[in-house]
């Protein structure tokens, strides 16, 4: 799941930046790696890919700051 999410972020939000490395612990929100429309795309991807719905209440920094946090959140919802 880590890999799927990282591949999605690299390919869909950073197409063309071949040297980009993202680890599961990287801060995606504070570093500028993902902006607000990008985050909506990621949430859409998660909903489709893992068959869950993410209600606004769960769209928080705690759940989406890093790929690791997203994985934990998705697992808790499946």
């Amino acid at each position: 799941m880590d890999k799927q999410l990282i591949t999605y972020i690299k390919d869909e939000l950073h197409a063309g930046d071949a040297g980009l490395e993202i680890t599961p612990q990287d801060d995606l929100l504070g570093s500028g790696l993902v902006e607000s429309m990008g985050m909506m795309k990621i949430i859409g991807f998660i909903e489709n890919q893992y068959g869950i719905t993410v209600p606004p209440r769960d769209m928080t920094i705690e759940n989406f700051l890093t790929v690791e946090a997203m994985v934990n959140y998705i697992s808790s919802r499946q």
Partner: peptide, 14 residues
């Protein structure tokens, strides 16, 4: 408002 909050409205309102 730190960048992370500008992307997460539920955290921002908090």
């Amino acid at each position: 408002i730190p960048d992370a909050y500008t992307k997460m409205p539920a955290s921002l309102s908090q």
